[in-house]
């Protein structure tokens, strides 16, 4: 078994643009869930409107990619308002139900035959990010060490993706150590108290929902620009659940939790994938027990198992504050 291959693959996965996209979306979810206490189970919906905002603007309407980015962000704001206005005044569970439904509705609408002229239906849209790669300042070549190597295109999206992650993390850091963040966290703890102290809870929840949703949309853009392809079936609720998993893994309500969580999540998932495939190839695992086609499913089961172990031994996540565990919250 060649562990240098497995580790190389895993490291590539850990710093991939997909990991950056997930980190961005998880930072958004962290603002919702980790800091404000909003149960948003439809983060994938924000990812979808961001991704398709770019894809549709460029492919269907022949607009500029940068206009597409603006359209994607605007769509995320509209989605946040549409979800928030009716539900944020209600109990937390209503937002959870509404968001999970909205995510699925969006996916079905975008993949339906009715919208195919706009969205490409089940075939999706491809080749809309040429403009992004046209401004790549990196000369052609191969960049990296050992097996962790990227083309100039791969490195370009990587730099932009992780650059956005750094920027988003900085914004979250500034926000959360400010009085604004204090109000947001107080809403998570008990919104009636915040209200009794004169804070406009609805307004703050809305700001949180919009900000986190916009980050979700940016994540969706990084995700589709890296492959130049937007395909509706990639936007199912599992994405949101994976985001929750990696957020809790890294530490919900911490500044770096979602970033660390995303890196570990992608490292583990690629590591297990590569490891299992080699094990089957080399005959360590008989094909009757595990066929190569089943690896994808099994690795997620193993990631799930790992999360369960983490929750048993490190319930606040890797970066979580242990002092919080001593509190009987709620």
């Amino acid at each position: 078994m060649d562990f240098s291959v497995i580790l190389g693959d895993a490291l590539r996965g850990a710093i991939s643009s997909d990991a950056a996209a997930y980190a961005l979306m998880a930072i958004g979810l962290n603002i919702h869930f980790g800091y404000t206490g909003l149960l948003n189970f439809g983060q994938v919906g924000f990812m979808l409107v961001g991704a398709y905002g770019v894809a549709i603007t460029v492919t269907t309407f022949g607009g500029s990619l940068w206009l597409g980015v603006v359209v994607g962000v605007a769509c995320a704001v509209v989605l946040a308002l549409a979800l928030g206005i009716p539900t944020l005044r209600l109990r937390a569970d209503y937002l959870a139900i509404t968001t999970i439904a909205a995510g699925e509705i969006l996916r079905y609408v975008y993949r339906s035959g009715y919208t195919e002229p706009l969205t490409g239906g089940v075939f999706g849209l491809q080749g809309f990010a040429d403009e992004f790669y046209a401004i790549n300042p990196l000369p052609p070549g191969r960049y990296g060490i050992g097996r962790v190597v990227f083309s100039e295109r791969g490195l370009w999206i990587l730099l932009v993706g992780w650059g956005l992650v750094v920027l988003a993390t900085l914004v979250v850091y500034l926000l959360m150590q400010s009085p604004w963040g204090r109000v947001i966290r107080s809403i998570r703890e008990n919104e009636d108290v915040a209200r009794s102290l004169g804070k406009n809870v609805f307004g703050y929840k809305m700001q949180s929902l919009v900000l986190g949703g916009v980050l979700g949309a940016l994540g969706g853009m990084v995700f589709v620009i890296s492959t130049q392809s937007a395909h509706p079936d990639g936007y199912n609720p599992v994405v949101t659940f994976n985001l929750y998993a990696l957020l809790v893994l890294g530490g919900a309500g911490t500044v770096f939790g979602p970033v660390l969580g995303s890196v570990i999540f992608w490292f583990l998932s690629v590591f297990l994938d590569s490891f299992l495939r080699q094990a089957i190839e080399l005959g360590f695992v008989p094909a009757t027990i595990l066929a190569p086609a089943e690896v994808g499913a099994v690795r997620f089961a193993l990631v799930g198992l790992g999360l369960m172990l983490l929750m048993a031994y490190r319930p606040a996540g890797i970066l979580g504050d242990r002092r919080e565990l001593a509190l009987d919250v709620r």
Binding site: D192, V193, S196
Partner: peptide, 13 residues
């Protein structure tokens, strides 16, 4: 300004 019968602390603040 009011307070509550069941004390509502903001636990993790």
């Amino acid at each position: 300004v009011r307070t509550f019968q069941l004390t509502k602390s903001l636990m993790r603040l």
